[in-house]
């Protein structure tokens, strides 16, 4: 019974991960990732980690995937991978290297010294985790709140639209713009010089400027 559940969840997990990597459409990839996260939640359940299974569904499949889908809807990506890949030979090197990585990790897993005394069930689910979190791991637990707060502030600073082009010289988006422009001019990239100047003049960009680098016919 347990072996059956494991095999089923493992097959679904590996298949959905492969689907995420191999399918070109990022919306399909997001859906595959949801399936993958769900199968891993099932595996957590078979390992006796009920709290983590619930947290996996709520935090990952709920919150993080909503963020991803939101970003996909906002950015409408996917057209980047339709054209010919200028670095295809380099990218294909990933396959042998991935196989090498898999071999290495599997060797580490298999060659691991056997643990003493067979398999013991983890004591309790939520109770044991809560006790550990609020005694031994209290300091890291509090640090995570600092981390989340820092992430929140950082995201706000990144996402904030400047009041005007002149006022945002020190804002992060202004700095990113400067760095990208410098790199684009150095490398002769697709959008350098006048196009970039036109964009920075057209701020705020929520009014959708004419989109210099985009092919209207897709």
């Amino acid at each position: 019974m347990q072996v059956g559940v494991f095999v089923l969840a493992a097959l679904i997990g590996v298949g959905s991960a492969l689907g995420l990597v191999l399918r070109r459409n990022p919306v399909h990839g997001a859906l595959f990732l949801v399936v993958n996260l769900g199968s891993i939640a099932v595996l957590y359940l078979t390992l006796g980690a009920q709290f983590l299974a619930a947290a996996q569904v709520i935090v990952y499949a709920g919150a993080i995937m909503v963020l991803f889908v939101f970003a996909i809807m906002m950015l409408i990506p996917g057209k980047e991978e339709t054209g010919p890949d200028p670095r295809r030979p380099v990218r294909l090197l990933a396959i042998p290297f991935g196989a090498l990585l898999l071999l290495e990790v599997l060797l580490m897993v298999v060659a691991r010294p056997a643990h003493p005394g067979g398999r013991v069930r983890a004591a309790g689910g939520v109770q044991a985790i809560g006790r550990l979190l609020f005694t031994d791991y209290l300091f890291p637990f509090e640090l995570t709140s600092v981390l989340l707060l820092a992430a929140l502030v950082g995201v706000l600073a990144l996402a904030k639209r400047g009041a005007g082009a002149g006022a945002t010289a020190g804002a992060p988006s202004g700095r990113i713009q400067g760095a990208l422009d410098a790199a684009g001019q150095g490398a002769g990239g697709g959008s350098s010089g006048p196009a970039a100047a036109g964009r920075s003049a057209a701020r705020p960009e929520l009014t959708e400027p004419p989109r210099p680098g985009r092919d209207p016919a897709r």
Binding site: V14, A17, V21, L106
Partner: peptide, 20 residues
């Protein structure tokens, strides 16, 4: 299984061009 999933994810990071 975790090793297999990790390798698939690593290949995906290298192969794909879409940051999302």
């Amino acid at each position: 299984l975790s090793a297999v999933l990790f390798a698939i994810g690593a290949v995906g990071v290298i192969v794909r061009r879409d940051p999302l």
